[in-house]
Every structure is written in C-alpha cells, then in structure tokens.
Design a protein around this nucleic acid. Sequence first.
DNA 1: GAATGTAATGCAACCGGTTGCATGTCAAGC
DNA 2: GCTTGACATGCAACCGGTTGCATTACATTC
Lengths: 345, 345
Amino acid sequence: MKRDSDSGGKQRPSVVPTISQVAKASGVSRATVSRAFSRPEMLTKETVRRVKEVADKLGYVPNQVARALSTGRHGNVALIVSDVANPFFPPLIRAAQLRADQAGLCVFLGNSDEDPAREELLVGRFIGQVEGLVLASSRLDEEHIRRHATRRPLVLINRDIEGITRVLIDTAPGVAAAIAHLAELGHRHIAYVSGPTTSWSNQQRRNAVRREAEKRGLTVIAVPARPPSYDTGRLAATQIVASGVTAAIAFDDLVAQGLMAGLAALDVEVPKSFSVVGCDDVLGETTYPPLTTVSARCADAGDVAVGLLLSQMNGGVSGEIRHKLNSHLVIRASTGPAPVKRRSR
Amino acid sequence: MKRDSDSGGKQRPSVVPTISQVAKASGVSRATVSRAFSRPEMLTKETVRRVKEVADKLGYVPNQVARALSTGRHGNVALIVSDVANPFFPPLIRAAQLRADQAGLCVFLGNSDEDPAREELLVGRFIGQVEGLVLASSRLDEEHIRRHATRRPLVLINRDIEGITRVLIDTAPGVAAAIAHLAELGHRHIAYVSGPTTSWSNQQRRNAVRREAEKRGLTVIAVPARPPSYDTGRLAATQIVASGVTAAIAFDDLVAQGLMAGLAALDVEVPKSFSVVGCDDVLGETTYPPLTTVSARCADAGDVAVGLLLSQMNGGVSGEIRHKLNSHLVIRASTGPAPVKRRSR
DNA sequence: GAATGTAATGCAACCGGTTGCATGTCAAGC
DNA sequence: GCTTGACATGCAACCGGTTGCATTACATTC
C-alpha cells in the first residue's frame, strides 16, 4: 500500500506545486499551509513566515478551483449584457470590472446579443461557477430571472422586477429637462424617436416625454427607430422632417447621431433649422455638431450594481433594493432656437 | 460511524442536487451517473436514458468546479484587453465571445487599463481557472508573457513575440493604399498623427507611412497624439495646419475624428481644403464627414485568436503561428483632391 | 507540583465530480 | 457444458484545497 501521492513523479515535473508539496517542504501539515494562506491569524507569525517563504520559493499559488469546491466561494461573478458593441455598455463593463477587481473577484462576461435563449444558456454555464450575477438590460422573461435569483445573488440593471435588487437609470428627470430646454427655445412640436418596445428604458423615456410635453403644451409625435442604431436613426429623418416638427429627442445617442446625418443629407441644418437631443451621453463631444443629450451615467450603474451584488453576497441583505440613478441634461451644440415658423408648407 | 453523507440533511434542502443524489434516486453508482453525462457511449442506452430522466426531474447539472478539479479542464478562457472602452475592442470582444461560446467555453474578461501591473494581477487571478488566455494589445513585458505561456496556452493579439502564437492586424497594406490614394489626389505633403510609442500597431503604421511616402516622393511629418484619443487628435489640428501639409493619416479613427473636429474649429473644411484618413474602421459612417479609413477587421482578430487558442488547447499545436490579418482602404468622404497650392502663406 | 486554560498544530473527513481497475453478466465458440 | 471475451457497471482512490475536532505544548494559577 504505497500511497506516497505527494512525492509521486508526475508527468509535469516542476509546474504548479500543490499544498502537499509545500507542506512537506516546510515540515508542517497541509492544514497548516492552508491556514497560512486563508487564516494566518490562527498561526504563529513565525510559522506563517516560514510557510510563505517556502511557498514563494516553490512558486506555490493556492488553487482557486479546489478552494471553490470545498468552500463554495469561487471568487467569480458574471456580467451579462445585451450587446457589448453598443457604446452604452463598455463604460458600464469597465466600471463593473473595476469594482469587482477591488474586491478580488474575477468577472465572466456574457453577451446575449439580444437573444433570450442565448442569455439563458449563458446563465446556465455561469451559474455553477459564480457567486453572483449582474444582468444588464436582460431580455429574459420575469419567471426565468426569478428562478435564477433563488439560486444566486442577482442584480438587474435597467429592468424593474419587484423583489429583485435592481439599479435603474432614471432618465426621466433629464428628459424632462430636455423638453423644458426645447420649450424655452421656442419649439412647439417635437418628435420622440423611439427604441425597442420591450425596453424598460424606452418606456420610461417615452412616458417622460409625453408627460412633460403635455405639461408645457407641446405636441409630440412618435417615430420608431428599430432596432435603435445609427442607420435606423438616419432613415427616420425623412419622416420626421415631413411631419413638420422642429426638434427631436432620440431614444439614444446613436439614433440621434444617425438622425443628424439624415438631416444633413436633407440639407436641414442642425441646430439652425432643427434641434436634436440624444440620450445616454456615450458619445461625448465626438458628434458633429456636439450633441445635446441626457446624461445617464452608465458607468455608475455598473459600479453600483456590483457593489450591491457584493453586499448581497456577503451580508445577505434581506430587504429588496431599487436603486435609482439620476440623470441630467448636458447642453452642447445640437439644440438652438426654433426656426421662425413658415406660414405653410 | 454513521457516515451517510448522501442522505445527510443539509441546510439547503432542494437546491443544487449532487451526483450522489442522482445516483441514489436512479439506483446506480455515482460513476455511472458521471458517465451518463461525460461518456454516455460507455453505457447502455437504456441506462443513460433512465439516469438523465432522473437528473432532469431533480434539476441536476454537473458541477463545473468539481469536474475541473478532477479533470483539469475548466471550460474557461480569459481575454484581457488594454481598454474596454476603446471602440477598437468591443467588436473584438464580441467575436471572441462568440467563438468561445460555440466551443462551450466561458470567457473571463479582464481590463488592464493600459497598466502592466494590473494586467499581471489579472493574469494571476485567471490562470488558475482557465485553460487558455488571449492577451490583446498586452502591455506586459516579454519575459512575463513568456513565463505565462509556459503555464497555459496563450495567444497574443497585436503583439509580436517570437515563439508565441499571435495574430497581428497588418495595417501596412491598407496604410500603403491610403498613401497611394492621397498621392493620386495630388497631395504632396502629409502628416502622420502618431499613437503610443510602445504600441506595435503604431510602429507598424508609422513605418508603412514612411516607406510608401518615400516611394512616391511625398514628404511626411509626424505629429504626436498621446494618448490616442478624440481630444489629443483635436489638439493636434493647430500644429498640423501650421505645418502646411494638406492631408493627415491618423493612428486611429478616434484621433482622426478629433482631428476633424479641430480642423472644423479652425474653419478648415474637410475634404475641400484638407483630407483626413483614419485607421481601424471602428466608427463606420458615423463621423461627419464619413471617414476614409484603413479597415483593420478587428472583429476577425478576436475570432481567429480564440480559434488558435482552441486548437492549441486541444491538439497542442507544436509549431509557432504568426497569423496576419490583412487590411484595406475604405474610401468615404473625408478625402478629396489636394487644394490648389497658394503661392505663399 | 498538579490542575486548568489557551493557543498552535495535526488528523481525517469532506466538497462533487472522474477514472483505472475489478467484478459480474451474458452470449458466442469449441 | 465450459471457456472465453466483450461489455456494462461498481469500487475506491484521487483532484487540491478547507475545517471541525482532537491533541499537544506551554503558561498560569493556586
């Protein structure tokens, strides 16, 4: 019964030393080595020092996978977004990463490409090896989300499901400010260039436009740009110009940018003859002309979401949290006074 | 000695059934359950069917972490990029994801934020739980990269280290075409707006500009935009205009876009009085005017890199691979005939 | 000096799978 | 009818850590 699994000659000689090798080399038990790394306060300083020294020499690093198996803590979280390539997400991803990093966590990124089935598949793959999930603009139906939430701490971004922790980018105040801004500039008839009907953000924005416009006596028409993109925005220009409005507020910056391109192609000058407002503020000053937009602080959303996830993972927060992020209007150069009204068209 | 670990009442009653529970419920051994999932061809069809049925009923899913511990295959790969927020990366990330997904792999995303120390930290966290790594635009020094490559399959993007599998986006042909294009339009003096000196891409582009310009008898000046961004591009405009050149080719699209904004601010019309060429083709037609640029097919790079990683993980490809991706010029509206020369300035 | 308490370390079971080998079953071959 | 072999399944060790409990060593107190 020779069971000297430690000294056993493996095919890979020097790579990846295990806890047993460190234990043997430093003349202590595996338990002590383990504690030197995970609970050093239980040990003599001297012991910790010695073990770590040996470990260093051998190039030992605790095996995360093995650790995860026995403790159930993997040190991983998952972030699933609906479209990595949409400029709304990269800053959000970056902020989420940063926050997770600070907590020593690794992050899995999933890209659902707007497809619920894909998203479900990804969740399935991730859930076994993460301690928590963040779903940004999830396209999953409520039932699925609830089920996953029973298995793991889960935080939603821009999805409003009761009982599940969520962070919502509340663009209503910013949109309201945008309407006020346009009203002050003398615009009376405006268009809302709308996004996906299933999107929580779109519903929220459209309602805010309606409400505020009504309050100020403006008339609003809705023109779709679906899916929201530069191209659909551009294509919407004709219809919008034909409708006789003098300003438009778009579902997002990409649509707004497309719209401006469409207007330019029709020889409609922005902001001289037509004003455009975007949403999300993801393009900064890079458009021509620089876009007036509603800043949605998407980076903060990533940061906050991971923060909430962390506290849920640790403390096991009981109460439901519905975190709202404020928004505000950033005025640049795509909005200006309403053109003098022509008598007839 | 009552050691009935299987039926033992855990605190969590129904969640996450284990292989033992499935084994018991279906009246077979754990080994058989294991094989029903990982090597069904070893078992009777009937057995597989029965086990899977029971597993389904119980909601059993094999635990990835446990599996990884015993097999050493985690089913994960890591992708580290230097800046998620740079528009060059999202398409690359997306393509890499897609490819990994098809192979049933989960991907960890790391963001080094251009910081070698951070990148090293991330690699350390990932390496224990992945089967392979892709480093895009790595800022690590060669020695570190080589070391990691001995531990795990590793593929580089836009980093040229001998002996390590790498995919390089070869923009030289596209840049050469751009110079030719400008020469044909009558430009004689041009500027190269350069990026990070340590960047492989930048060196390659600058050299291509030099070489091709010399061949055609154009003169080139170099103007820095560091770090490469919209803002540094914008700021470079003054110096460029003052130098008397009639066209510029920028390190990337962002710089080019900034440059166009800077030119507009100086009342220099593009393309009438000045031509601008970008690089990477990540902005499509969204600039004003639409940017002539060198298409670098960054999405393909992600796809190819993961593909190479996979083959390295499986077959254990022996020979070194240096995969070059071609580039070509996309002509849009930011380039035009050189303005008629004024006698003096 | 014996009893008591406390701090440091070791022992061995356990996490949930995988897998080499042994065992058992059944049918074909002589 | 008994041997032989192929095939299906079970046994038990193993992956590399963690942790409850036992043990040991040492200091304190009376």
